[in-house]
Write a protein that binds this DNA or RNA. Structure first.
Lengths: 200, 200
DNA sequence: TAAAAATATTGACTTAAAGTCATTGACTTT
DNA sequence: AAAGTCAATGACTTTAAGTCAATATTTTTA
C-alpha cells in the first residue's frame, strides 16, 4: 500500500468514525456535512470524494456494525438448534447495544427502505441476516434436528420479525429496558414454545 | 361552524390528503412542500399555517391511520383471548395493508424516534397500541382467562415487537408477501404456542 | 533526477428546498 | 357599516447538500 492510499484510507476512516459519533449524539436527521468535515479538519469536498451522498456514510456505518455480527455467527459451535438461535439473538442484541440507539434507528430506517441503499451496494446486503437465519434453520432440518415438515420460510419470517421488532420496540421506548436481559427472557418464553413442535 | 372555519378545515384536509398521496408515491424523503402546495392549488405559506414543520403532516397522516385501528378495537366482541389477539393482529395488518407501504415506512420511522413527534402532540400517542395490547392482556388476567402469574409486561413486549417486526419485514421485502395471510399463519403457529402456557 | 501523470484536497460556488413574514382581502363581530 | 380577525399569499431569507476548477502532494516515467 502506497503512502497516498494509506492517507486516503486514514481520511475515510476518520470521517466514518466521526460520523458515527455524530449520529449517535444527534440522530441521523441532524448529521451535517459542514460540521462533520470541520470536526474532521478536512474540507467539505473531501467528504464527497469518499461518499457520493450524505446517506452513504450512514449506510457504511451500519454495514460495518452488522458485518461484525455475521463474523461472530461463523464461529458458532455445534450446539443444539435452540441454543444456536438463542446465541444468535444474544449476539445480535449485544452488538446492537454496543452502539448507540441512534445507530440502530438509522439501521432500521435503512432496512425498511430498499431504495435507500446507495447504488454501489448490493441492496440485498441489508438483508443478509435473513439469509443467515434461514440457513441456520435449513441446516437444522438437514441434520435432522428439526422435522422435515418444518416450515422454514415461515419460521425465518417469524424469528427475523421478532428480532427487528425487538430493535424497534427498544428504539421506541428509548432504551428503557436491557435488550440482553430481555432477549434471554424472550428465548426462554417464546423460542422454545415455537420450536418445540418441530424438534425431532 | 362558520364559513371561514369550514374553509380552513377543507384546506387542511386537502393538504393532508394530497400529502398522503405523495408520500405513498415517492416516500417520505421525497415529499416537497413546493410541489405539494402547487398540487393543492395553494401558496406555500398556507402549508405553514396548518403545519409548523414539514414532518408534522406525516405525523398526522399516520395518526389518522392508527386512530382507525384503535376505534375498531373498541368493538371487540367477547371472544376468547386468543381469538381477540388474532383479531387485533388481523385488523392491524389489514389497516396497514390498506395504505401504501411508504406510509408504513413513515410510521415506523416516527415510532422509533420519540423526538420526531411534533411538540404539540403527546409523544406517548405514538405508543398507544402498546397500552391497548397491555390492557387486553390485563383484562384477560382479571377475567381469569389467563393465569395470575402471566408475565403481562413481557408478553406485551413480545407481541408488540412481533407486530412491529412484521411491519418491518413487510417493508423490507417491499411487500413480497401478503400481510393478512401471513398474520393468520403467525397466529396459528406462534400466538397459540406462546399463550398456551398461561391459559387457565 | 527531473519532468509528467495521477490523484487527494480544497473552498468558493451553485442549487434546492425549508421556513418566514409583511401584506392583502374576504369573512365575522360589534 | 366600521372595526377587527384571520386564512391566504408569494417574494424573501436561510440552511445545507452537492459541484468543480484550481492546487498540492505523491507516484510514475523517461
Amino acid at each position: 500500500m502506497t503512502k497516498r492510499q494509506e492517507q486516503a484510507l486514514k481520511t475515510k476512516e476518520k470521517i466514518l468514525k466521526e460520523a458515527a459519533k455524530m449520529v449517535a449524539e444527534n440522530g441521523v436527521d441532524n448529521l451535517n456535512v459542514d460540521v462533520l468535515t470541520e470536526r474532521c479538519g478536512v474540507a467539505k469536498g473531501t467528504f464527497y470524494t469518499y461518499f457520493k451522498h450524505k446517506e452513504d456514510v450512514i449506510f457504511e456505518i451500519c454495514r460495518d456494525l452488522f458485518a461484525q455480527i455475521e463474523e461472530r455467527m461463523q464461529q458458532m459451535t455445534n450446539k443444539s438448534i435452540v441454543e444456536r438461535l438463542a446465541y444468535y439473538f444474544d449476539e445480535f442484541m449485544k452488538e446492537v447495544e454496543r452502539y448507540d440507539v441512534n445507530i440502530t434507528r438509522a439501521w432500521i430506517r435503512g432496512v425498511i427502505d430498499p431504495n435507500n441503499a446507495p447504488a454501489n451496494f448490493d441492496s440485498k446486503k441489508w438483508q443478509y441476516d435473513v439469509e443467515m437465519l434461514e440457513n441456520i434453520l435449513k441446516n437444522a432440518v438437514k441434520n435432522k434436528e428439526l422435522k422435515k415438515n418444518t416450515p422454514v420460510e415461515l419460521l425465518t419470517h417469524i424469528i427475523i420479525s421478532q428480532l427487528y421488532g425487538m430493535m424497534t420496540v427498544w428504539c421506541m421506548s428509548d432504551c428503557e429496558f436491557e435488550p440482553k436481559e430481555w432477549t434471554k427472557k424472550f428465548c426462554d418464553v417464546q423460542l422454545k414454545a415455537i420450536l418445540e413442535k418441530y424438534l425431532v
